[in-house]
Simulated scan of single mutants.
Amino acid sequence: MNDVTLRLSGIEKTYLPGTPGEVRVLRGVDLALRAGEMVALVAPSGAGKSTLLHIAGLLDVPDAGAVEIAGQDMTGRGDRARTAVRRQDVGFVYQFHHLLPEFTALENVTLPQLANGVSERAAQARAMDLLTRVGVAERAGHRPAALSGGEQQRVAFCRALANAPRLLLADEPTGNLDPATSDKVFDALLELVRGTGLSALIATHNMDLADRMDRVLRLEDGRLTPAA
């Protein structure tokens, strides 16, 4: 049985190719992320970690190489197929929560499920379960503006996992928080990931957080290597 959730093979990406400003961001990146594995991605600013995450999550297309998610080779697949896999199998978390301001925390976690065909009753039940796991159930009826930064980001984690994806991609998910809040929010993320058994690739500058994951990979000069 194939237990690899995400496989990247020979991923290359160049911006402004053939011009004086050409930048080779990714130079043959290979990665196998196994089911239930939590991997930290560390990199200097501008090294291309966001580009790599976008390619892994089917938001961008590499110049060369292959992306396989949950056993499906996405090479050459059209927008409709990529969108379907992204909606079903991939969850995203960013540095800023990007919650919908006019909806409550509960609604923000419920809406992605409704868009995926889940009944309202089932969607609300799952949303409350996720919010409870990260300790913000009592804030379910509040809109984002009434939540603290840490609470907003925990709701964003729940939204990313609402449709039970197999893969979570996170780009500096605690980078906008103070150190104490960052630790608490990361604890919530860790509990969610471990509790649901999904795979996670998390970009972070925080080596204390990175060291709590299963592996730490460094992206530098367009290639991935184990962090020292």
Rank of each mutant, 00 (worst) to 15 (best):
G46Y: 02
V155G: 00
L209T: 11
G48E: 00
A164M: 11
T75E: 08
T75K: 14
A56V: 06
N206C: 00
S50E: 07
L130A: 05
K49D: 08
T181Y: 06
G46D: 06
Q113I: 07
L130S: 10
L161A: 01
T181F: 04
P165E: 04
G18M: 05
R194A: 10
F157T: 07
A56F: 03
A137L: 03
L41Y: 15
V216S: 04
L41R: 11
M213F: 10
N108V: 01
R143T: 03
R34M: 01
G28K: 02
F157L: 14
T104K: 01
M207I: 14
A200C: 09
E220D: 11
P44V: 09
A227W: 15
L198G: 08
G150D: 06
A64H: 12
E68R: 13
L58I: 03
D89G: 04
A200S: 09
T196D: 11
D63E: 13
P20R: 02
G10T: 10
F103Y: 14
R77M: 03
G48A: 00
E138A: 13
G222E: 08
E68I: 02
E191S: 15
M38N: 07
V42M: 15
T110L: 03
L177G: 09
T174R: 10
A228V: 14
L177S: 12
G65R: 07
G91F: 04
L217H: 00
Q88K: 12
F157E: 08
P17S: 11
R126F: 02
M74Q: 01
V193N: 02
I69C: 05
L217C: 05
L53W: 00
V216C: 11
G149T: 13
T181I: 11
L6N: 07
L114N: 10
R27A: 11
G46C: 01
V185E: 04
V39E: 07
V136Y: 06
G57E: 08
S148I: 01
M74S: 04
P62Y: 03
A227K: 10
L16A: 15
L31N: 07
A64D: 13
D178H: 13
N176Q: 14
M128I: 05
Q113A: 06
L99R: 00
Q72C: 11
L201K: 00
M74H: 05
A56C: 09
A140G: 03
V29Q: 03
L100H: 08
A40N: 11
D183H: 12
D221W: 09
T132S: 15
A43R: 06
A64R: 14
E191C: 05
R215A: 13
P101L: 02
P165G: 01
S9W: 07
Q88L: 10
L59H: 00
L6V: 03
V39F: 07
F96A: 11
T132R: 13
R27C: 12
K49F: 04
V61Q: 14
F103K: 02
L161S: 07
Q152V: 01
E220I: 04
R154N: 02
E120P: 11
D89R: 15
D178P: 08
L209Q: 14
G65K: 12
L192G: 02
N2K: 12
D89P: 02
E12W: 01
N116K: 03
A84L: 09
G21A: 13
